[in-house]
Amino acid sequence: MVKRVIRFYVDGFRSMASWSRTLWIIILLKLFILFFIFKLIFFKDTLNTKYDTDRERSEHVIEQITK
């Protein structure tokens, strides 16, 4: 069963038209930009980076939303 499923996907990718391959290149490039450039470099979780405990995080948020 697993072999048949794997073969199904392998055959599908092999018989793709050239424009479909271009789409896959775009998808992979996009995922690389999103997860390895944007997420790792620019989008760090602000509260998790700055504070170690949930208690500190909640204190920070309360300070921010009540100032």
Partner: peptide, 19 residues
């Protein structure tokens, strides 16, 4: 996956909201 960026923004730009 273009919507994933919105989730990145929640944690980084809108952390008070996310919390």
């Amino acid at each position: 996956a273009t919507g994933i960026i919105l989730e990145f923004q929640f944690g980084t730009n809108w952390s008070n909201y996310s919390w």
